[in-house]
Amino acid sequence: MANALRWSEEQLAAHLRRNPAPETAPLPQAQPEAACTYTAPTENPAMNKTEAEYAGMLEAQRLAGSVLAWQYEAVTLKLAHNTRYTPDFMVVAADGALEFHETKGGFIREDGWLKLKMAASMFPFRFFLCQKAEKKDGGGWSIKRI
């Protein structure tokens, strides 16, 4: 440590008098109920019918305790230069893991599928493809981890 700065007690005290430490404000208290709320599609026109239905399911899971929080289109991930991916839902699972859920009606286009797979390979989060099943097939959701 040849370049280390060595001060005597008097020098340190003089420095602290000239440069007092900034006062720190107390940290705000967390508001767990305000973490996320379900927004009905009429209140959020950006959400399509499939996304609104999935949001309802996520909210039911949050109320049941299997999901801690969720938000619609909360983050955008940069995959490459001029290539970004915004998952439909960011979800905090009951175990605290961060998940991204992509909802689709019956099919997913190739560019969407590639972005989803690329994001799953680049980021250390759980990614899921959540597809709405046809009513003739019994309805519900097909949820596949990527």
Rank of each mutant, 00 (worst) to 15 (best):
L27W: 09
R18H: 11
E73P: 00
V75R: 07
Q11P: 07
M57F: 13
L114F: 10
V91N: 01
L16R: 11
G65N: 03
Q29R: 13
V67W: 03
A93P: 08
L116T: 01
F107M: 10
E110N: 06
T37Q: 11
E99C: 13
G138Y: 03
L116H: 04
V91S: 00
R62I: 02
E43F: 03
W141C: 03
W113R: 11
G65H: 01
G112K: 03
I108Q: 04
Q31G: 09
P124C: 04
A46H: 04
L63D: 11
T103A: 01
A4H: 11
A40W: 09
W141N: 01
A120R: 09
A46R: 06
N19S: 09
I146S: 05
R6L: 13
P32I: 05
Q29K: 12
V75A: 03
G112P: 04
Q29C: 08
Q61E: 15
A93F: 03
M47I: 07
A119C: 05
R62V: 06
L16V: 06
P45W: 00
W7C: 12
Q31V: 11
E59D: 15
K132Y: 02
M122A: 11
G96C: 08
T37F: 05
A52R: 10
P124V: 06
Y38K: 05
E73I: 03
W70A: 00
N82Y: 04
L58Q: 00
N48K: 00
L5W: 03
G56F: 02
C130G: 02
I108T: 04
P124K: 09
R17H: 02
Q31P: 07
K144H: 15
A13V: 14
W7T: 08
N44P: 05
A34N: 12
R126F: 00
P87M: 09
F100E: 01
A4Q: 13
L5C: 07
E59S: 10
A80N: 01
W7P: 10
E33Y: 08
E9I: 13
R18T: 14
L79Q: 08
G140K: 02
P28W: 06
T42R: 14
A52Q: 06
F123R: 09
S142L: 15
I108N: 02
E134L: 15
V67I: 15
A35K: 09
E134P: 13
A4Y: 05
A64H: 03
E43C: 08
V91H: 00
M57N: 06
F128K: 05
G138W: 05
R62F: 02
A4C: 11
S66M: 04
G65C: 08
A52G: 14
T39N: 08
E102Y: 01
G140Y: 03
W141D: 00
G105F: 05
E110K: 08
A4V: 14
L27F: 12
P45G: 00
A34T: 10
K78D: 07
E134G: 15
C36L: 07
D111H: 10
I146Q: 09
D88V: 00
A14V: 11
Y38I: 01
L77P: 05
T39W: 03
L129V: 14
L68R: 05
C36T: 08
E102Q: 09
L114D: 14
N44C: 11
F89V: 01
E53I: 06
A40F: 08
K78I: 12
R84K: 13
